[in-house]
């Protein structure tokens, strides 16, 4: 079984990595950003439970948003906490993925 990966974006010219797509690389201003799969292992740095969502997420009910630090590269990434958030806390091992819309999701490491 392969370790899970998550797609980031990397500049082919300078190697700068982003967790979001951009037309222009902020590292070298080149336009050669391309998807790159990196290990999805991360550590949860923080979380919150959104009880009053913005209109774009109206009706979603309380949901958890977290910030995780990638094990490789150390970058912080924000995303919706998917699945069971119970038991997760600051310092928990988590895995990053992207949902159907391309948004980062965070779930407990080893969770299905």
């Amino acid at each position: 079984m392969h370790d899970p990966v998550v797609e980031l974006f990397e500049c082919a010219a300078c190697g700068h990595r982003l967790s979001h797509f951009a037309e222009i690389c902020p590292g070298c201003l080149g336009d050669a950003l391309r998807p790159v799969a990196v290990p999805a292992a991360a550590v949860l740095e923080s979380w919150t439970l959104i009880r009053r969502p913005a209109p774009a997420h109206a009706g979603a009910g309380p949901f958890a948003v977290g910030v995780a630090r990638l094990a490789e590269g150390g970058q912080l990434v924000s995303g919706r906490i998917a699945g069971e958030a119970e038991g997760l806390g600051v310092g928990s091992a988590v895995t990053l993925a992207r949902d159907a819309g391309g948004r980062i999701t965070i779930r407990a490491a080893g969770a299905g």
């Binding site: 967790s19 979001h20 740095e45 923080s46 979380w47 919150t48 439970l49 959104i50 009053r52 969502p53 913005a54 774009a56 997420h57 979603a60 949901f63 948003v65 977290g66 910030v67 924000s78 995303g79 919706r80 600051v90 819309g101 948004r103 980062i104």
Partner: peptide, 19 residues
């Protein structure tokens, strides 16, 4: 990014506080 995750400003400072 942050907005797409459903973050709000109270949520941002909830994150800051937990950390």
């Amino acid at each position: 990014t942050d907005g797409a995750a459903g973050l709000t400003y109270p949520g941002l400072f909830g994150l800051v506080w937990q950390a």
